[in-house]
Every structure is written in structure tokens, then in C-alpha cells.
Amino acid sequence: MPLVLRVQALNKSFIMHAQGDLSLPVLRDVALDVAPGECLALVGPSGAGKSTLLRSLFGNYRPQSGSIRVRHRTNWVELVGAEPRVTLDVRRHTMGFVSQFLRVIPRVATIDVVAEPMLRLGASPEEARRRAEFLLGILGIPDRLWSLPPATFSGGEQQRVNIARSLIAEYPVLLLDEPTASLDAANRDSVIDLIRARRKAGAAIVGIFHDVAVRDALATRLYPVDLPGAPA
């Protein structure tokens, strides 16, 4: 089976210089492969390093050693130690990340926040806008809110704006950190439908899903994560 993401011997510790160079090992020799159409759910207790792994895959956290290779356009690209412009290009074209919280940009309208990743890929403003409206509609954001900046929206609304923004570009690799954490049942189901459609279209997904129903609906495989040295 062709792969799109391949992680080998990944190690990540946090070294706190203000605490006498205290070292907190979080990931040790992590290895995983993900193929198109797969959804790998990271499972493990709180604090086990699931988010650290996900953020490392996105190039947000910097592992000390090991390899994270992603299929980017037609090449394999190494993300551990990559130059900033390489990581940025991978994020622009290949890899999307849905975090629990939207980092709000002051004064930018919701519709433009959502359309931006698609514009960056060269879509026309009309096309990007139409797609953004479609996604916001499916996610139940009322159209009277589209022209407002999302800063004052509720947590659940912001999360859905975030999901729309991350799904609009149809990235081949999607990383999801609790994508339904603050949603009610109806909105949760729309998010599940959208993500499942991406998976069926061939996206490779790695996610953290606290909600077992969401995990069951999306995951094709479970990947246990635990702290180095923790009892198995």
C-alpha cells in the first residue's frame, strides 16, 4: 500500500532551562505509517504525549531526533530539521491541522478567515468564497455571522470556523486535535460527516478523539501513545 506519512524512531523531550535544564521525555522511538484513506486515532491517557506527537507531525514542535517524512506533491519531504520554507510549503499544499482553538486574527471577517487557505493555493476569490460559504453552511454557522470577525463567537462556533478553514483546501494529510471537543450533537455529526468524506476521498488522517463515538465513527486504526517508561 502506498504511504503518505512515515514516522521513524522519533524522540522528543522538553528541556526546561528555567528549571535547571529539567528534561521531560515525551516521545521515545515513535514509529508509524499512514496510507491514504486511513484514519489513525491516537489513544492514551491525558498527558501521554498525543498532542506532542500530533504537533511534531505538523512541524510545530521540534523533535530532537528521528524522522517524519511526508509525501509532498510527488516527493518525500523530511520534516525533522526542515528549513522553515519547506515546512511552510508542506503546510500550504499537503498538511492541514485542526486545533481545538481558533487563533483569531483581529478584524478579519469569518468568511475570509475560512477562504484564505484556498486563496493561497491559487483559487479565484469567487471560488474560494463559494466554497467557504458552503462549508460554513454545512457547519451551521448562520450567514449573518459570516461578515463578522470570529473573535466574539462562542467556543463551539470558533471551533467550527476552524474546521471549515482546515477542510477548505482539501489537504492530502489532515491532523485533528479534538475536532469536536466543544460541539453539540448535531454539529458534531456534521463534522464527522465532513471528515469521513475527506477520508473516503483519500485523505490520510491522524487524530485525537476524546469522544469514543467520534473515534468509532472515524478511526480505521488505533495507535496507543504512552509516556516513555509508563507501565504498558
Partner: peptide
Amino acid sequence: TGLTDQMLDDPQHAYTQMLVA
């Protein structure tokens, strides 16, 4: 040096950690 989000979310040098904190 590094990507802005790396530096702010996972600062490595003692001085950067102090700045971010």
C-alpha cells in the same frame, strides 16, 4: 531561529523560553 510557531510554542534556547514565558 525557526518557524514563528515553533519558536513561540516550543522554544528551545533558555533566553527564548524566558521571553515566551
